[in-house]
Write a protein that binds this DNA or RNA. Structure first.
Lengths: 210, 210
DNA sequence: TAGAATTTGTAACAAATGTTACAAATCAGC
DNA sequence: GCTGATTTGTAACATTTGTTACAAATTCTA
């Protein structure tokens, strides 16, 4: 764990903080599709993502879903931070898109470290800023793009996160993430294929153009 | 200024911090429709809103706009905070919806206060959390609601912010905020009027049902 | 008060997205 | 192999949203 921690955070956190994290942090391995945070959870800590990819999804009362963004290694979940510090509920769901490794940091330390470590302050503020920007990008996408553009962007974003030009997924799953119907996705995927941008196979989509 | 500061922040900030804010903060009065922050600005400080209402708008490269949310008294602009601390550019535009009063806090103090005052840490974290939640609500609205629902919600939200059941606005302005066309707004407003929820006049919309 | 500018109403049509229904293809397990 | 479940393709149609065009109503200004 120390090794992975050093890998991604030695340029972010000072040595003393890394030591503390190693002491109090709880390492956890997530298998693919494992649920990390559910809607309404009260977080007792914050996850630091060491490896893998995590999908953050918003759900409303009626159970309708939409993908907000993905977390990559080095990221943390700002919404958990909110929930952990203020003891409130989390408004999102987090699911591992592939096998991932995290370190869980206990809520009690979060505020203490803000005082003690400038690098921690920077990290927290940066995380919030990154997340705000991510949310703005999501809003841009929803407000300004048509479904065909959103779909193509989704495929490219996911390929980047998964570090794979070939995605294992079904039309139905994509429809859930983009909050539309399977038929619409099938139609637009076929259109993208005709334009030569992707290649369709059962349970697999290859991205040909980036 | 001290009086207004005490009014809304005496239960938020400790006395020493209020003193410091009074010393270094710059008071400013904004007239209606005055531009406070523009797209791409580098913020040299953060505004605290003492009085009034400020509209936060997102704009993409093509000049297309959409309303993100409103700020009320007691609020601050998380996006400015981001920009001020990291010396980056601001991704939004802020415009006074009505005459407003703000205090501008210099960037230099922001980090210093994080160490010195627990109340400031709470305020900053809370502000980020409130903004993240506001963004999620905006995303819910865009992803899950039809235009007629969005329009009605917009009217009610704006009435609340302006503390007025009667809004001075045109169909075109609403269309800009919701990123649609004037004709669509006129059509849906007429529909809401027929349902007895609002009453239409030139340059004025009364909300009858809340 | 006449004429210009702004705001609103509405029709007719186009495009995008959503829905229902069903068939064909592929796969998993026996 | 056969059978049932899953996934994909596609047609036909409904609904929502966007566009163009133009007239009427209201306000502003000279």
């Amino acid at each position: 764990m120390r090794e992975k921690l050093e890998n991604y955070f030695s340029f972010v956190f000072e040595k003393e903080l890394l030591d503390e994290i190693e002491q109090v942090g709880v390492y956890k391995k997530l298998r693919e599709n494992e649920l990390l945070v559910d809607l309404g959870d009260k977080m007792k800590g914050v996850p630091l993502l060491l490896e893998g990819a995590i999908k953050i999804v918003r759900e409303d009362k009626k159970g309708e879903e939409i993908l907000l963004y993905f977390l990559e290694r080095g990221d943390t979940c700002a919404s958990s931070f909110a929930s952990a510090i203020s003891n409130g509920k989390c408004g999102i769901r987090a699911i591992a898109e592939k096998e991932s490794e995290i370190i869980f940091l206990p809520a009690a330390k979060l505020d203490e470290w803000l005082v003690k470590y400038k690098t921690w302050r920077n990290f927290v503020i940066d995380s919030y800023n990154i997340r705000l920007n991510e949310m703005m990008e999501t809003i841009d996408t929803l407000a300004f793009m048509r479904m065909d553009e959103r779909l193509y962007k989704y495929l490219k974003d996911k390929a980047q996160i998964m570090r794979e030009m070939s995605l294992n997924t079904t039309h139905q799953e994509i429809a859930y993430d983009l909050h539309t119907s399977r038929v619409v996705i099938s139609r637009l995927l076929k259109q993208l294929e005709n334009e030569g941008k992707i290649k369709l196979n059962r349970n697999r989509i290859e991205i040909l153009e980036f």
